[in-house]
Structures are given as C-alpha cells and as structure tokens.
Nucleic acid binder design. Sequence first.
DNA 1: CGTCATATTGATGGGCATCAATATATGTGG
DNA 2: CCACATATATTGATGCCCATCAATATGACG
Lengths: 234, 234
Amino acid sequence: MDRMHDDEVRRALGAFPLFEGLPPPTLARIAAATRPESHEEGGLVVRQGEPCRAFFGVLEGAVRLFRLRPDGREHVLHRVAAGSSFAEAAALTMPNYPASAAAAATPTRLLAVAREPFLRLFDGDPSIGRRMVASLSARLVHLVGRVEELSALSAGARLARVLLDLPSRADGSSLRVELPLAKKDLAAQLGITPETLSRLLRRWQDRRVVSIDGARVEILDAARLIALAEDVAP
Amino acid sequence: MDRMHDDEVRRALGAFPLFEGLPPPTLARIAAATRPESHEEGGLVVRQGEPCRAFFGVLEGAVRLFRLRPDGREHVLHRVAAGSSFAEAAALTMPNYPASAAAAATPTRLLAVAREPFLRLFDGDPSIGRRMVASLSARLVHLVGRVEELSALSAGARLARVLLDLPSRADGSSLRVELPLAKKDLAAQLGITPETLSRLLRRWQDRRVVSIDGARVEILDAARLIALAEDVAP
DNA sequence: CGTCATATTGATGGGCATCAATATATGTGG
DNA sequence: CCACATATATTGATGCCCATCAATATGACG
C-alpha cells in the first residue's frame, strides 16, 4: 500500500488545490520530495510542538486536527477529508506544528511532502510561488462567490447558474449542455437534495425552459433561465 | 481623492486577503509600488489583451469583470466588491489581461499594485510567497468549511459554532464571550436574517442555555450548546 | 431630546428537507 | 445474455425552518 510510482504521486499531487496548475516538471520535482504514508484510525501523524518535517495531502480516509488544551482535553479544530491537504501553512511559515493530527479512519493514506526539500524548490524558483498564489487566489474568489450564492440565492437560481456556466454547444435555437457529474453529486455541490434537483428540472421541463435526457440538458429558453438565475422569475 | 498617505495605503493593503499576515515592512515595500486610482461608473480599468501592468484592490465601489465574445457581446464573469482584489492571478502568471474590467459604481476607488516592482519583491524574497501561500490556504480551508456548514447545518448549529469558537473567559460554572460584530453583521456572516438570530438567542435564553446582555453572551449550558452545534438537539 | 440605525417580537407563507414508494440505470455472477 | 442486486433517479405527501412583512422597542449620537 506504500508502494506508488512517481507519476501516480505526481498525478495525486496535481489534484490538490495547493498544487493545481503547476507544470508537470515542477510537480515531478515536488513528487521526488514526497512519500506515501499509511495510518490506522487513531494513529498520530504529527504531534503538536514537534518541528515541522512535512505537510500532507489526504488520499484516502480522513484526518482529525486537534490541539491539546492546558487541562489535558483535546480541542478538535478541523476534520480533513480525502482530496484536501493540511499543515501547509505550518510547514511554510512555522518552525513547529501548532496542532496534532491523527487518522480518523482505517486505512488513511497520505502523501507527505517533506518540508526542507520543498522549501528549497519553492525558494529557488519564484515561478512556483507565483503559480501557487495565483491558483489559490482564483479558488478563493470562486469560493467566496459560492458562499454568497449559498446564503443569498434560491436553490433554483444556483442550479440555473450552473447550467448557464457549463460549456454549451449551439443547436438551432437552443443550447445543449452536458452535466459533468451524477445528479446526486450535482445536488450535493448545490447544497440541495437530489429530490429537489429532480423537481426543479421537472418544473422547468414542464414550462419548456429546458429539456432533459439523462445527463444531456437542452436549454430551450435561455432568457427565462437567466431570469431564474437572478431569482427574479418564479 | 487620489491623495493617500503611505501608511493609509499600507493599512488598506494589509486588509486584503491576498496580503493578510504579511509583516509591516513588506507591506510598506509593496505600498511603494502601489498607487490609488479613481473611476466613474463605466470607466475602463483594464482592457482584455493589454499587457498586465498591475493588479488591483477595490477600496470603494465595485468592478465588473467581463470578456468580449467573438460576436461582440460582453460576457460578465464576476463582480468584485469593496474589500476584494482582482487580476492577481493574471498579473502573477500571464503576460496579458484575459478579461476587461470596468467600474460599476461612482465613485470607484482602487489600489493599483504595479506588476513589475511587485514581482521583483516577490521573486527577491521567498518569504513573501511563503506567507502569501500560507495565509491563502488557511483562508481556503476556512471557506471550504463555511460552504459545507452553510449547506449542511441549520442556522442554529452555525450560530452555536460561532459562539463556541469565540475566545471565552471562564466565570464560575459558565463561560463569557463577547460578540465581535453587531448582531446584524453576525447574521449576515451566518447567512441568516437578524430576526432569526434574535429568535434563536431568545429561545436559548428561555431554555437557560445562554444569557444575553447586549453583545455579552454567557454560556450557561455548554454541553447543550455543543449538542446544538452538532444539530442533534432541538 | 429628537433622529436614525439596530434590535426585538409577532403573524404568515413558501421553499426545501424528510420520509416513503416506485422506476430506471448500472453492474455482477451464473 | 439474462436474472438479480444495488445504486441512482423520479414522484408524492407532509411538515418545519426560516424569510418576509409589519410594528414596536431600544439604543447611539449629534
């Protein structure tokens, strides 16, 4: 389970937000500083106060971050799921870990990016930092938008926005788009239940705004859909 | 209106997410590469295809980002409000602007951070990149949590979490916390209305979970509040 | 003290979740 | 290739959470 080829590691690294958009050669050099780790539930990954030796990406399972309080009880800060990374801020700017981390599932597989070699790469090639800052801030902009939409727009408006933002192909007087995920995952991303998603699409289909065929969606009345995306049409 | 002292500029820069956490001397050096701009509604800030000369923070007003489509119509990508920045990713990694930007209000005041001097700073001192990456990823983690909470937890659970995360002072058998914002702003941050916030606090006060006195909150029954934060108690 | 923003409280309604049942799709082994 | 098992999707019935509208109370401040 601890055996991975370098290009597996590289691909896995490129999937983390932190490294999104880095050119393959750079990823390869980071991969060289990376090694896989496996833990069982409860296994300690890093201990609060220890010198930072690495930061981590979660491939499978989950990790619980916690601080030990003066009274000995532990205070859970955060739970890190597969696909996210942790301790990057610590590894980049602090000498010691400010919190402990333990596996929260069996098995939990991690990628550990060693601090020293990574910092040598980072400091030696400013374009790495540029790209990382650029893609992190782009992602931040996107997420801030998501937060605002979630709390300000109806489920229907959010769905309409997703449909309008999807790459579309013109087809006569209508547009065709293809849903990039299963409907249940799309629902999760929109923060609604699959039932609600199904009902919304059904209503719009009855009103001839869209036409649904599995994952193929035909936008029949784009103007109406735009109004729905603004939450100004019922 | 275009007159600002250097330390005003520095303070304003430090308030942008992009620069959060940078040490004052570094902010001062960035401030030296920064100058204020003012625009009236509709005024073009940058033009798609032009060489990147700077990136921008919005002090007042708002900016509309858009791309010109082949058919000449403009496609609005995003609206940037006061307190946010834009074109950072472009300035850091692209030779030319991938989109145009125009002021969407009168007046719109911006800070323009010149690309070349900024990149010289960035490339010359790797700790700047480290700090920026660290604070951006910390913010990202925080926002991802917010998105999940917004779509998965009730308003009450979100409020309970805020109360429990606030710095508290023990006071006999209870904890005292101080709301850091006006209740209406706290409500906005939670994605609820002030009325709902008021009703939640009222209900909890009636049940002796908390006691409210203006912005002072006394947590009487922490166990119960923790249950509320998990959405497992009514 | 009057004025304006903020906060509280009530009444009402709609959006969306929940629970439940069925239909369709996807995949698996014989 | 079909029969079965399992995941995903649709549709209906019901109810609660929370927004909305409205009225009043409380506070901040010149």
